[in-house]
Design a protein around this nucleic acid. Structure first.
Lengths: 180, 180
DNA sequence: GACGATTGTTTTAAGCATAAAATAACTGCA
DNA sequence: TGCAGTTATTTTATGCTTAAAACAATCGTC
């Protein structure tokens, strides 16, 4: 980390979860701690991809989705799966195509649709990155017992459902929202 | 969400956690689910800040840190607390200062240091945003029982410690890394 | 008191991300 | 058929973020 100290290029990662007072609400404390954990892990992965492969997490994510799907995906598919806007995907796929990792192709039936496909090089690169990624993430969770990870996985599943459900009811409320 | 469907401005949020196969490793599954949850909640908060206050989550985070500290903070303090680079803080504080939410001031003792202070307007705005934020986050977790939230909070604390510890040992390894 | 090392901040270049508007193609139906 | 509405993607403007380099002030030590 000497470089970071000298150049200021990398944020210092100390134990600075925004420490809330007890009266700040359990939900806010969960959210802030969740954000801290996800930021910390993301830093590790991003740093590894940068140093090891000169690439970025968003690009890795696109390749991962294509690999996992095992078939070409449309721009919209990628947008939904990565939970980012359509316009964002356009730029990411542009860069990946320029690097030769993916290929775009108009869909046969529907000329609006762009299908994105992994190239051989893209698939090969992804496998190497995925192996390292797995090591990094596993390493970061080494301090947790298997039961803890399982419990965490289950609770995060519950949280995910809760958030998704709340979103659905919020959308209904939006219908009557005069501000839009 | 009709606007989103029509304009493509907002990502669709369906249940598309990148569904891993069982052999993908418990750690990776925890990480991806963590990322999904944090992305979902972040979407909600960002959306609310945009619609209700014409502002952004990073700006809210800066105000939150200043409010929580209860005293002026230096650029470096903010950078460490938000876990982002120094350069990033420069831009955020620039915009907040232009909006009149914070003021910059050279530190007395050390002329390198910029102290950032909440203005009255900034503090007032933050209180309104914080109240809404709390409602949004609490609402998103409505589906969870109190015990679940407490368990989640505790496990995330364990995860945070684990990641921080692994980071320390990784840094030691870096010292011998010939690639740098 | 000079000077190398360190620390705090800003600048730069590139990429990521959103929201909103624009474009283009498809669908359904009168 | 024609055309209103929908869907898929891109474009535009703006802001966020990083990594790296540059700058500026301080510190330690001789």
């Amino acid at each position: 980390m000497e470089d970071a100290a000298r150049t200021g290029a990398e944020p210092r990662i100390d134990d600075f979860e925004t420490d809330l007072r007890a009266d700040d609400g359990l939900e806010l404390r969960v959210w802030l701690r969740l954000l801290t954990c996800s930021t910390l892990i993301e830093h590790g992965v991003r740093h590894g991809l940068h140093r090891g492969f000169e690439t970025t997490l968003p690009r890795f994510d696109v390749l991962a989705q294509l690999q996992r799907a095992g078939k070409p995906l449309s721009m919209g598919d990628l947008s939904r799966r990565l939970m980012v806007t359509n316009g964002n995907i356009t730029g990411l796929v542009d860069r990946l195509a320029r690097e030769g990792m993916v290929e775009r192709r108009r869909a046969a039936g529907d000329r609006r649709v762009q299908m994105v496909e992994l190239t051989g090089a893209g698939a090969a690169l992804f496998l190497r990155m995925a192996a390292d990624n797995r090591r990094w993430v596993t390493g970061m969770m080494d301090g947790l017992a298997r039961e803890e990870k399982e419990a965490l996985f289950a609770l995060l599943g519950r949280l995910k459902s809760a958030v998704l459900e709340s979103g659905e009811t919020m959308e209904d409320a939006d219908e009557d929202d005069q501000r839009r």
